[in-house]
Design a protein around this nucleic acid. Structure first.
Length: 213
DNA sequence: ACATTAAGTGATT
DNA sequence: AATCACTTAATGT
């Protein structure tokens, strides 16, 4: 049994019945992406659906000028709700997915999606749960942008990032953060300095340590 | 030694 | 919170 198959069993074994797991093993194509590589670009047509086996994926909204904004992260056991709607309809992706860490995926042929919905109860509830979960995350992202001030947004961003990477030391520059939050580098630098004075983080060149988790 | 990139800061809108 | 203009510090060639 391959490494990825083992991980599949550990991460999804309790979710799916054995039959479904073995179908996934048979039909799924393992794929991996290195940190910081783009997995899905805005406008891509989706031909298969990914199951996230390990690592974390950052989901971004992007406007026509390439200006971006982080929406939420996917972690192991998750799948992409955007892909689901793209697989069902024949629409293009409206989001960008970038590997936050090294990532292992299993790509499932989209033709099977509808089949499995009828065939496997566990699959059905997994898909519904995914939609539910994503809708929640999206609302949370909306609240963050609408109601939180920039300094709170920034601190939340850092905490989320530390959470999905399982590491309180973040390798990121002020410029990258400003792009993810869709603001300017100067603002990020100033607010980070403020957070450091409040003993919530520690600043280094090219990295930030989150103290209050 | 020089160029480039990251980060800090005052002033203005 | 954004932008400009400038400085300082670290890093690469």
């Amino acid at each position: 049994m391959s490494e990825i198959e083992k991980k599949l069993t550990t991460n999804f074994g309790y979710l799916f019945e054995e039959e479904l797991i073995s179908e996934i093993k048979e039909l799924g194509v393992p794929k991996s992406f290195k940190e910081d590589t783009t997995i899905i670009e805005v406008g891509d047509y989706i031909k298969s659906m990914p199951l996230l086996v390990s690592g974390a994926i950052k989901i971004l909204r992007e406007d026509e000028h390439g200006e971006e904004l982080v929406l939420y992260y996917l972690e192991k056991g998750d799948t992409c709700a955007m892909t689901l709607s793209c697989c069902m309809g024949q629409t293009k992706s409206k989001i960008r997915a970038v590997a936050e860490t090294n990532v292992e995926l299993i790509m499932l042929p989209k033709e099977k999606m509808a089949d499995w919905l009828g065939k496997y109860k566990t699959w059905q509830s997994y898909i519904l749960q995914t939609y539910h979960h994503r809708l929640d995350e999206l609302l949370e992202a909306l609240d963050t942008i609408a109601f939180l001030k920039m300094d709170e947004r920034l601190f939340k961003y850092l905490k989320d990032k530390a959470m999905v990477t399982h590491n309180d030391l973040l390798h990121v520059t002020h410029k990258q953060i400003s792009e993810d939050l869709h603001t300017s580098r100067v603002v990020v630098s100033r607010l980070l300095k403020k957070l450091e004075n409040e003993r919530k983080i520690q600043l280094f060149r090219n990295s930030i340590k989150v103290l209050e988790l």
